[in-house]
Amino acid sequence: MQAIRVHRHGGPEVLTREEVDIGLPGPGEVRVRNRAVGLNFTDVYYRSGAYPPPALPFTPGNEGAGEVVAVGEGVGEFTPGDRVAYYVDTPRAYAEESIVPARLLVHLPEAIGYETGAAMMLKGLTAQYLLRRTVRVAPGDTVLVHAAAGGVGLILGQWAKHLGATVIGTAGSPEKAELARANGCDHVIDYRREDFAARVREITDGRGCDVVYDGIGQATFPLSLDCLRRFGTFVSFGAVSGPIEPFDIMLLARKGSLFTTWPLLPDHLATREDVLAMSRELFEVVASGVVTIPVHARLPLSEAAEAHRRLESRQTTGATVLLP
Results as ranks from 00 to 15, higher is better:
Gln2Ser: 14
Gln2Asn: 15
Leu15Gln: 02
Thr16Lys: 13
Thr16Glu: 13
Arg17Asp: 09
Glu19Val: 13
Asp43Gln: 03
Tyr45Cys: 04
Ser48Asn: 09
Tyr51His: 11
Leu56Cys: 10
Glu63Thr: 05
Glu63Pro: 04
Glu73Ile: 11
Glu73Trp: 12
Gly76Val: 06
Gly76Ala: 09
Glu77Asp: 14
Thr79Leu: 12
Arg83Val: 08
Tyr87Leu: 09
Glu97Asn: 07
Glu97Thr: 13
Val100Trp: 09
Pro101Phe: 05
Leu104Asp: 10
Glu110Ile: 08
Ile112Asp: 05
Gly113Val: 06
Tyr114Lys: 06
Gln128Phe: 14
Gln128Asp: 15
Leu130Phe: 01
Thr134Leu: 08
Pro139Phe: 06
Asp141Ala: 07
Leu144Thr: 01
Leu144Glu: 00
Val145Gln: 01
Val145Ile: 13
Ala147Pro: 02
Ala148Arg: 01
Gly150Met: 00
Gly150Tyr: 00
Gly151Met: 02
Gly153Asn: 01
Gln158Val: 00
Ile168Ser: 03
Gly169Leu: 03
Pro174Thr: 07
Glu178Gly: 13
Glu178Tyr: 07
Ala180Met: 05
Arg181Phe: 12
Asn183Ala: 09
Gly184Gln: 01
His187Met: 13
Tyr191Val: 06
Phe196Tyr: 11
Ala198Asp: 14
Leu223Asp: 15
Arg229Pro: 02
Phe231His: 15
Thr233Val: 10
Ser236Asp: 05
Val240Leu: 14
Ser241Phe: 06
Gly242Ile: 07
Ile244Cys: 04
Pro246Asn: 07
Phe247Tyr: 08
Met250Tyr: 15
Leu251Glu: 14
Leu252Met: 11
Leu252Asp: 00
Gly256His: 04
Phe259Arg: 15
Thr260His: 03
Pro263Asn: 13
Pro266Val: 05
Asp267Arg: 14
Leu269Thr: 01
Ala270Val: 07
Arg272Met: 09
Leu276Met: 10
Leu276Glu: 09
Ser279Pro: 04
Ser279Asp: 02
Glu281Ile: 12
Leu282Tyr: 00
Val285His: 11
Val285Gln: 12
Ser288Gly: 11
Ile293Asn: 00
Val295Ala: 05
Leu299Phe: 11
Leu299Tyr: 12
Ser302Ile: 05
Ala304Trp: 02
Ala305Ile: 01
Glu306Met: 12
Ala307Val: 03
His308Asp: 04
Gln315Lys: 13
Ala319Arg: 03
Ala319Glu: 12
Thr320Trp: 01
Pro324Ala: 08
